[in-house]
């Protein structure tokens, strides 16, 4: 397995491997890698997602209200996000 990426980088990479994902799904997928770390918190993940969205690298076109009445936003990667990943993703991660 390739070395761990910085968390924000890995979140962007994970979103590129799925059609769309909400924060809970992203955290579940990345738990084996970052789950024991102190930074593994929903607020931290949300901050990364909102920053990625503010930088026009991911989109948040899909939003729903769940059974508990809470907002769930599904994020998906866009063209600019894919371009950045293609350019800067370390070699060991390219086939993932």
């Amino acid at each position: 397995m390739a070395e761990l990426l910085p968390l924000r980088f890995r979140i962007l990479h994970y979103i590129s491997t799925v059609d769309k994902a909400c924060v809970e799904q992203i955290m579940k997928a990345l738990e084996p890698e970052y789950g024991t770390e102190k930074q593994f918190k929903k607020a931290v993940f949300m901050d990364h997602l909102l920053d990625l969205k503010a930088n026009f690298i991911i989109d948040d076109n899909d939003a729903v209200i769940d059974d508990k009445g809470e907002l769930v936003i599904y994020y998906s990667i866009n063209h600019e996000g894919r371009r950045l990943l293609n350019k800067y993703l370390p070699k060991g991660w390219r086939q993932k």
């Binding site: 910085p6 980088f9 962007l12 920053d51 930088n55 950045l84």
Partner: peptide
Amino acid sequence: AVYGMSMIDP
């Protein structure tokens, strides 16, 4: 820095 921070925590 902003370009780099697309992928790195500020």
